[in-house]
Nucleic acid binder design. Sequence first.
RNA 1: GACCCCAUCGUCUAGCGGUUAGGACACCGCCCUUUCACGGCGGCAGCACGGGUUCGAGUCCCGUUGGGGUCGCCA
Length: 522
Amino acid sequence: MLLQLEVFTRSQAARLKRRRAACLSSVGIIRRLLNPASSRRARQKTSSCSNSGSNGKDNMKPRVRFAPSPTGALHIGGARTALFNWLFARHHGGVFILRIEDTDLERSTKEFEQSILDGMRWLGMDWDEGPFYQTQRMDLYREHVQKLLDEGKAYPCTCTPEELEAKRAQALAEGRKPKYDGTCRNRPAQPGKPAAIRFRAPVEGSVSFHDICRGTITFENRELDDLIIARSDGSPTYNFTVVVDDVTMAITHVIRGDDHINNTPRQVLLYEALGYPVPEFAHLPMIHGSDRKKLSKRHGAASVTEYREMGYLPEAVVNYLARLGWSCGDREIFSRDELIKAFDLSAVGSAPSIFDFEKLGWVNAQHMAKNTDDEIAAMTEPFLKAMSLDAGDRAYAARALATERERARNFKELAEISAFYFRDVIEIDPKATEKWLRGDNAKRLDTIKNRLALQDDWSEQALAKLFESALSEFGCKMLELAQPVRVSLTGSTASPGIYEVLSILGKERALKRIEAALQSVR
RNA sequence: GACCCCAUCGUCUAGCGGUUAGGACACCGCCCUUUCACGGCGGCAGCACGGGUUCGAGUCCCGUUGGGGUCGCCA
């Protein structure tokens, strides 16, 4: 066997330590022996690596990366992964790298890439290096493949995809785990035939790795097979590029979704075959939809841009996402800086969590409450515009929105419930009409309209006085007077205080609306 | 099917051998109130099950059940 099965084991002590010790552990950084394209990378610090292991020097700043593939928009689950990487880097004063894994030429698009970048920026996750593109690093991968080939740690495989697929189907049908059967492993090269390159994986023993969220995870090598590291067209595959990239970018901590746990043993084997130290891993629990399945488009808003469109604050989304899988005592609301300060990978749980829109709404409302009226107006304006409403008068908008802001959980909602302030003609809810604009209610409305017409001071205090005296004259309850007015002014039975609404709308518009309401039931 | 991961209120979670099992969202009630909210107070609700270990188990171990993930010349 070419590979000494040097398994990455950890001592008991290290295991016990894992919950507590934040994660600046162990992994030494490898010397950057390859020289990649980007000039920026040339400036990066390099260091020769001590061997890995928990006794290594920890003076190295952590380097982490987020590596999305531009085959879809930035998913909310991906955003959470990015966030934990970003938070970890910022907390420890480390480096956050963005890498675009665009080797799937078929499905990768510039648009998706752009939307991922936009999403990252919107959420305020800035990166220190990159974006790097795998498609620009092909020479690097080729060199590594060649190295393994030269050392006999990889071999060409001429099995056709059809043959492979047939064997896979058969294995599955027989209830076996589909694995490559090693047909080409010891077969002499077949010149002329298109060949993929497979990694010659050990068949005995086991491979273990340390996971910050879960402790030590072990796989039996017999469960693994000889994975393809380069396709027959020469392009490298994911499990290979990720190792080469993480090594050459000197990544110290690989923080990613736990759907990658099953890839990790293969990658560890690759690190070892290549003679590189293994980084620290942290596999984050997934985010599920309400059906407890991996969150996807089917569960409603899946991409982060949709949250922007729904009027959520980026810091609220970040806050909510951070609290999914991570907690900090009883604390719920955090600003971005507070998150950076408090974040601790070792406090991340290991059970999957369900995305809860209700709670996100509450968190968003908490963050909205921190904004001034003017900021609220500025942020609501685009949503008003989207409804073809004119919110050009900022002072007016600020005053109007101030009366509604506490009733909304996001800006879209705020725009919707505040629309009556910005419309010329309002629509009245038919049920409200029946209940509050008929009979005695209409009479009272007519009378108060006439009183209001004679009133010049439309301050809230003055209006209150006017209503109070009218009340004692009519001998009715406030409710019986306020609701008809409210309905005629806003179209709804629920609104801010009636004096506020009256005062903000102003005499002319208010009277016009009351008159229109009266007309409609006549 | 095989392998891997996971398991405290409906949901997010605290808990790291001794707690009346704590907080938050949601829900319900009361207060505030001209409506709806906000806010305040209170309430409902949880350790999946079975074995161990221990004086003592939500906490440690094993098993069962349940859920999820992965088994590509996708990433």
